[in-house]
Design a protein around this nucleic acid. Structure first.
Ligand SMILES: NC(=O)c1ccc[n+]([C@@H]2O[C@H](COP(=O)([O-])OP(=O)(O)OC[C@H]3O[C@@H](n4cnc5c(N)ncnc54)[C@H](O)[C@@H]3O)[C@@H](O)[C@H]2O)c1
Ligand SMILES: NC(=O)c1ccc[n+]([C@@H]2O[C@H](COP(=O)([O-])OP(=O)(O)OC[C@H]3O[C@@H](n4cnc5c(N)ncnc54)[C@H](O)[C@@H]3O)[C@@H](O)[C@H]2O)c1
Lengths: 237, 237
DNA sequence: TAGACCTTGTGAAGAAAAGCACAAAGTCGA
DNA sequence: TCGACTTTGTGCTTTTCTTCACAAGGTCTA
């Protein structure tokens, strides 16, 4: 089986080409990355009672340029009305469908330490089709705990009890992450969200995204240092 | 004060231009985003006893192409030796300096719920110059708790007690995030890591990065759906 | 019904990032 | 010392992403 390497959270090469037979357009990876933000803003607008929204407004709320927003939406098809804007609920439906959020995505979290428990407690998971169906840990003193109504099991038992698992979330120490990923993949999991600071090797047909606190902080530090240098130079020069 | 809007975690426009007087090169934003990964791989190599590493090897470990790795490193200056590779510890020093990790970055975490506590417990923070110096929360039943050796204070008290705060981490509910960001900014914080699902409005001189679980899951779902569609079509056609 | 007025959708241009391929520059053994 | 061999650094090409700017297409008022 061919194996790719997935280290960086936002792979730039994830352009999404639908099958040629399909008349749907290619949706660029960069666009896919922004759709969730649009969706969220639209949901808030909808709850606030808005029925329509113009690209300028939605763009402003989500922090992108209006031209970019329009181009992004244009990949989903043409749903705006010139002179008026977009129908909020129609756009919600459209993005929801495009992202696959009408489907049911059973999620397993492996590693019920601090992070795993925080994720399990996070309500936002439950919305949008994501459903936590299993919690796994290896530590005998943790196995058997009930977290958010779900029992913590050993990974093997969790897998045995859940034939279909769409998404695996890994929140174990980094040195365990690879073997856990291997077991998830073997069980048919094709989407992995990895919190451990390690590059997972998985087959090409498996999608890994990484969330790395440390990376985010370091990027912030880089910019902060640059600001400081600029300021120092300014003061001197 | 001019205000920008920062919604997406990885703003594509964050190219980093050093001052003209400086002879250092411009480091593209995409490169900055990969440096932490290189640094981590190098640290592991160093701990494993490697003194030198070739671009092919380091690229393979971090999941990028070797040409890209070399180009990335070339922005830091020329530190490789042709025919041999790179000196591991020298490269570590170089990247560390470039990212500003030789400096001290005092961090405050605001919102000591599940996520905030998980972050406070996360050891990886302490390395690399990041130092958690304050924990803040509003809930009277939480204020006064000692988490990881630090007392939880009200935000106002935390700010009063810490004149210099370089990085603010926001782990409160989304509806509180903006006002907390405002207070952090007012106190001089110029780097914010936002876990709340909301686009923060901050002045141009403030850098916001967002970590959003929900976004990551939705991107995974998009790709998973695409895979399923491809498979379904394959089976049918 | 007509014309003023909006806002979309998009072609084209521009900018950024990725990838290729090879000359340059070093090592190392004999 | 020399020549075979290795790996870097980078100019150039290709691809991807963003931004511009405006015609097209629709609304709304009178
Ligand atoms: N906590 C954070 O804020 C944070 C932030 C960034 C990254 N991370 C990363 O996330 C991961 C988890 O962090 P944490 O703070 O929750 O750690 P933790 O030590 O609290 O939890 C890890 C859990 O994984 C379990 N585990 C270990 N090996 C296992 C295995 N083979 N199978 C199943 N379970 C296993 C342990 O029993 C433990 O409960 C780490 O890799 C860490 O680097 C954490
Ligand atoms: N927990 C997760 O896994 C997770 C994942 C993704 C996103 N998030 C986001 O991170 C944030 C925190 O999540 P959580 O699960 O830790 O929530 P939580 O409810 O457990 O914690 C929030 C904490 O913030 C405190 N708080 C509220 N208002 C405050 C204020 N004005 N000043 C200071 N403190 C205040 C509360 O007292 C509470 O302790 C939320 O916005 C959530 O959407 C969490």
């Amino acid at each position: 089986m061919p194996r790719g390497l997935h280290l960086l959270a936002s792979s730039r090469r994830d352009r999404c080409r639908l099958l040629p037979q399909s008349n749907k357009r290619v949706v660029p990876g960069a666009t896919v990355g922004r759709l969730p933000a649009y969706l969220q803003a639209l949901t808030e607008l909808s709850e606030a009672g808005s029925r329509r929204v113009a690209s300028d407004e939605l763009a402003s709320v989500t922090g992108v340029r209006s031209a970019q927003l329009r181009k992004d939406l244009s990949y989903l098809g043409t749903y705006g009305v010139r002179g008026v804007g977009y129908d909020v609920s129609q756009l919600i439906d459209e993005i929801t469908a495009e992202l696959g959020l009408t489907q049911d995505w059973p999620v397993i979290i492996v590693g019920m330490g601090n992070m795993g428990r925080a994720l399990a407690a996070y309500g936002g998971f439950g919305q949008r089709g994501f459903r936590i169906v299993a919690l796994a840990d290896d530590d005998p003193s943790i196995v058997g705990d009930v977290v958010q109504g779900l029992p913590v099991c050993r990974l093997a038992d969790s897998l045995a009890a859940n034939e279909r698992l769409a998404i695996g979330v890994i929140t174990t120490p980094a040195d365990q992450a690879q073997q856990i990923a291997d077991r998830l993949v073997e069980h048919g999991v094709q989407s992995i969200l990895n919190f451990a600071a390690i590059a997972l090797r998985v087959p090409d047909n498996v999608d890994v995204r990484r969330v790395d606190l440390s990376t985010e902080l370091q990027i912030l530090a880089f910019h902060a240092q640059r600001r400081d240098m600029a300021k120092g130079r300014e003061g001197v020069g």
